[in-house]
Design a protein around this nucleic acid. Sequence first.
RNA 1: CGGGGCGUGGCGCAGCCAGGUAGCGCGCAUCGUUCGGGACGAUGAAGUCGGAGGUUCAAAUCCUCUCGCCCCGACCA
Length: 564
Amino acid sequence: MRLSKLFFTSLRDNPAEAEMASHRLLVRAGYVRQLGAGIYSLLPLGFRVSQRIEQVVREEIDAIGGQEMEMPVVHPADLWRESGRYAKIGPEMVRFKDRGGRDMVLAMTHEEVVADLLRQIVKSYRQLPAIVYHFQTKFRDEPRSRGGLIRVREFVMKDSYSLDLDGAGLDHAYELHYAAYERIFKRLGLDAVSVGADVGIMGGTLAHEFMVLNDAGEDTLVLCDACDYAANQQIAAVRKPEPPTEELRPTEEVATPEAPTIAALAEFLGIGADRTAKATFFVTGDGRMVTAIVRGDFEVNETKLTNAVKAIGGLRPAQAEEIAAAGMVPGYASPIGAKGTTVVVDDLAASSPNLVAGANRHGYHLLNVNVGRDFTPDLVVDIANARAGDPCPNCGEPVVLRQGIEVGNIFKLGTDFTEKLGATYLAEDGTRHLIVMGSYGIGLGRAMACVVEAHHDDKGIVWPASVAPYAAQLVALSASRDPAVGEAAEALYQRLTDAGVDLLYDDRDESPGVKLTDAELLGMPWIVTISPRSLAAGGAEVTDRASGERGVRPIDEIEALLKG
RNA sequence: CGGGGCGUGGCGCAGCCAGGUAGCGCGCAUCGUUCGGGACGAUGAAGUCGGAGGUUCAAAUCCUCUCGCCCCGACCA
């Protein structure tokens, strides 16, 4: 491809809105352009990268027996009503009516469509197991997109679905995907770690997320360097400290003016935060008030809490009036005397004696509050966030917390969808069974952004050969001044292209500085330079973009290098 | 949704507080010079100042409303 003809422009200045390196570089180098919040066009260069990533994914999913197909972007709402997700999912799903007044949705994912196909197509155990997949656009009206391609509203995802006779089949398909994902991310040049994850709105029994460590990542990971423990903080269950053993003392109200926070309270009383009880308040999507109690030295984990109370439509922080209506005083609150709220107490808080808790009176706390004696929780369960340094649940060594970007995930769905939609098969013995599903996603655009995050320097992108839009960029310097350079470059371009090398040929009439700077910005693995200098030295100069090593080499050698 | 910021030629920005004929750098076009690290000169094209309403003799500038984008938080298969 001739750069002079490429639908492309590079920018000299960084785009004002781009904060993350991947966003800045992909826009500046002419790979993508933003259309709206979380909505991007892939320009020819970006599209080629996306296609190369897609091809890697395709090869690996094909290799585990995946059959590629394509499912629609627009779905009838009735299908989502059948699965129950029409009501369960909030405003992130786009809903609209077609001209006939029928309720429709934009696809966020395709479990429903797969299950619908299953009930139409699969009748016999002979047709299973199978894996189907597609690359298809998803639209999720995220409340807030961010980070360029990291979190967008419209994106193409590879989603595959395993279809099995039973749980053992699902386990096998899950393992196949797990291994395929490890190969995919390795080929893409991504150092992804898999972590145990929450199943979220997918339901099901087990999930892993493949995470690329990145300080700008949205997820917090709990990792153990001593063993292989790795979990999303949403579900990470570390060992908790042993609570002190001491006599339960009678409660006692004390004045604690100006101490509405744990930090202020602990300082005022001269005690550790671990001797206090922290109360936080939420309301479920269907309007239930939830009071969560953790020890003062921990934070509430909303995912764990959401799961514990089986919150329909998730949780939101409660308003001050809602807290007051339940008989509690924000800043000085405890469940003692509260009513009309589900009280969930973290297991550690429940077993820690003589905590300081709110008195539900402004400016006062209660000493020696004991869960079970002074109030009765509705639930006692782990609802606390793992902290850096807490003991690993496997080996007891201190865990570390890291930020990560989720590049892929795998879910054991089980029979949730096939049960609701009635997708069954007849077994060999004539009995009818539900088909067992798994669901496995990789976002292509996010993967592209992650590759750039991991492979760039201060000059630009440094594509791994596996996803680079072109194998090399051929740069002719001073061609307009020295016709021999132009001729040599044209000849080399022709020869390499004929030899099957994907070449981006910078034939623009630009100054050497512009061309070399752009070549580094665009980030092809090899930069091949032809100039009066290189011709005098008997060939073209080849630069390894990653290492910066360069040298003049004969044309035959360059051809062999780029073909290999 | 809460908090903060920003919308002025393609890109990056100044001008706004103290209203008075819309500017700068880069890019773009033409010509000439230059040619291994974002060259130089000359000439030129290009802007409903996000939108609507209002105040005023006069609005990019003041007021009201509104749309959009970014960041933090909430949220997030």
